[in-house]
């Protein structure tokens, strides 16, 4: 048992030292790229979800207004709303699918940010202190308070380096694997909300708006005050929807396109090794700082020796 514990301690320390020699964390630039990406996805995820729900409401309202004006149209060659299908294509299921895509994109940005941001400093400090406290109970391990503190700092710092190395490895793998999915969702949203393109739900919204505009515009010239009253309310609704499509939608479309481009930059930043020199410098500085305090060479050796006594 004592032998295996010694090996475990050796492995732990050896592993941590190996990480300092080989491991490089994400650079400041890479972390900034993740932050930019995360901020963008949060904004678009929330706005898109809200807008899709609002669009569904407006489509139902506009189709209802068109139905009031047109009545029941039986000619199958003509386009007209159906009383039983006022949310045509903007069904709860379809809207939910788009909202889920936007939400997944937002969650992706947030989880990526959380992975990069979490340094685990508090947990590492507590674990390192616990480690030193245990070592102090080992017979023969005569550690002064200062020596104990220095070992705790070393374990904390090496643990931090190990975490940074693991983070980089995970982020590089996941971001590369998710590249096509992120591009896909962004492209779908960018096209969906682009007022210049006729595509899917965005196009359906436009078609419903234009129909109401045409129907209401014609009825607004009626001699009947009731007709004009109905027509003006309907026309106002179509103007509001058109403005929304031209102003808000185009912003969402541009933002989704922006995320797609930011994601490409992030993938490129992670794929290239331009940061290797910087990381190597940071690692060298860290190793030098540890070597200066003679922690690895002196106290860690003492620690291992102390445990070896139990063999």
């Amino acid at each position: 048992m004592s032998g295996s514990t010694t090996s475990a301690v050796r492995l732990t320390l050896g592993g941590l030292i190996l990480v300092t020699a080989t491991g490089c964390g994400l650079t400041v630039e890479q972390k900034a790229a993740v932050s930019r990406f995360s901020r963008s996805t949060a904004a678009v995820g929330e706005t898109t979800s809200n807008e899709m729900i609002r669009m569904r409401g407006m489509v139902i309202q506009m189709n209802a207004a068109s139905y009031v004006i047109m009545g029941k149209v039986t000619d199958p060659s003509l386009d007209a709303p159906k009383l039983t299908d006022l949310d045509h294509n903007f069904t709860v299921s379809n809207v939910d699918t788009v909202v889920q895509a936007a939400t997944a994109l937002q969650a992706y940005g947030e989880l990526l940010q959380a992975l990069v941001d979490d340094t685990q400093q508090k947990e590492l400090k507590s674990a390192a202190e616990s480690f030193v406290a245990s070592v102090k109970t080992v017979p023969g391990a005569k550690l002064s308070a200062d020596q104990g503190d220095l070992i705790a700092v070393a374990i904390e710092q090496l643990g931090g380096l190990y975490i940074e190395w693991k983070k980089k490895k995970a982020v590089k793998t996941i971001v590369t694997q998710a590249k096509d999915a992120v591009t896909g969702v962004c492209q779908l949203l960018a096209t969906e909300f682009d007022p210049q393109q006729a595509d899917a739900l965005g196009s359906q919204f436009q078609k419903v708006t234009v129909r109401l505009q045409a129907e209401a515009s014609h009825l607004a010239r009626s001699t009947s005050i009731t007709d004009r009253s109905v027509a003006l309310t309907a026309y106002q609704l179509s103007v509001e929807a058109r403005k929304r499509r031209e102003e808000i939608f185009s912003k969402i479309s541009r933002a989704a396109g922006g995320i797609r481009d930011t994601n490409h930059s992030l993938v490129s930043a992670l794929a290239t090794d331009t940061w290797a020199f910087e990381d190597a410098k940071a690692t060298a500085t860290m190793i030098k700082a540890i070597a200066d305090t003679k922690l690895v060479s002196q106290y860690t050796k003492e620690l291992v020796d102390s445990v070896r006594i139990l063999k």
């Binding site: 475990a8 301690v9 732990t12 699918t97 889920q100 895509a101 997944a104 994109l105 969650a107 992706y108 989880l111 990526l112 959380a114 992975l115 979490d118 685990q120 947990e123 590492l124 507590s126 674990a127 390192a128 616990s130 480690f131 406290a133 245990s134 070592v135 374990i155 643990g159 190990y162 975490i163 693991k166 983070k167 995970a170 982020v171 793998t173 996941i174 694997q177 998710a178 096509d180 999915a181 992120v182 896909g184 969702v185 779908l188």
Partner: peptide, 30 residues
């Protein structure tokens, strides 16, 4: 696309849990 993103999100959560294990490993050694 959402299914692929959901997989990526699960991988991010798993990586986070894996990293959380570092402090746990040190405490276990203690």
């Amino acid at each position: 696309a959402t299914a692929s993103l959901t997989e990526a999100n699960a991988a991010l959560k798993a990586a986070k849990t894996d990293i959380d294990q570092v402090a746990v490993a040190i405490t276990k050694a203690a």
